[in-house]
């Protein structure tokens, strides 16, 4: 049956509005095991959960549970930027082409502009803000600073997050690995050579346990 545990969740039965209250009794029948699961599903619709209209959801961002009002069509990027004021992730294209919105989701680099906010519930989301504790930058962020892996800096949060994921997966990347890992991040200013240097430098430091 539908696992309705969050306040605003509406069970699958809400689809069948217009079918009258008979639905409820059918559901009762099902739990009683009188008809098959499949037959029940045909009448009731599949198991699951519906969200429609403006809804408050909880997102776990940088270790904190954040409540945020979204619509089903709200992207994760918009939820972060427009509602939670987490503006590290940038909107460069809103279409998956530029990587400026890259965040980590359960440790993997993904694009926040191509993810629905409602689909990010229950996931561990880390934005660039979550990579540094208080004022201390991660070794990779430090390397970006020292090697000048940025100019206007608009693409930088996305590159930093993508490179963080890259190094987690491959602590000793070759130049080609780095290029492959960052191929989805567009930098119009052309910082790539310095970014490559930064990632290589950070990799070295991190391997030494820095």
């Amino acid at each position: 049956m539908s696992k309705s545990n969050s306040s605003n969740k509406i069970s699958r039965r809400s689809f069948l509005k217009g079918m009258g209250s008979g639905i409820l009794s059918t559901a009762t029948l099902t739990t009683g095991g009188l008809i098959s699961k499949e037959a029940a599903a045909r009448i009731l619709g599949p198991e699951g959960e519906t969200i429609s209209g403006r809804t408050v959801i909880t997102l776990k961002v940088n270790g904190k549970a954040r409540r945020v009002a979204v619509e089903p069509r709200t992207t994760l990027l918009s939820a972060l930027r427009d509602r939670l004021d987490i503006t590290g992730p940038k909107e460069g294209c809103d279409r998956g082409h530029c990587g400026a919105c890259t965040v980590l989701m359960d440790g993997k680099a993904v694009l926040a502009c191509m993810t629905l906010a409602v689909d990010a519930r229950g996931k561990d989301i880390t934005t660039v803000e979550g990579l540094s504790q208080d004022d201390s930058l991660s070794p990779l962020q430090k390397a970006f600073v020292e090697k000048d892996g940025l100019m206007c800096g608009f693409c930088t949060p996305g590159l930093v997050v993508a490179a963080t994921a890259l190094l987690k997966e491959n602590p000793n990347p070759s130049l080609d690995d780095i290029k492959e890992g960052l191929a989805g991040n567009l930098c119009r200013c052309g910082t790539y050579p310095k970014v490559f240097e930064a990632v290589q430098t950070a990799a070295k430091i991190m391997r030494k346990g820095g």
Partner: peptide, 11 residues
């Protein structure tokens, strides 16, 4: 749109 998160194939 309305968003539905299905947990099973049936239905």
């Amino acid at each position: 749109f309305e968003y539905f998160e299905a947990t099973s194939l049936e239905g």
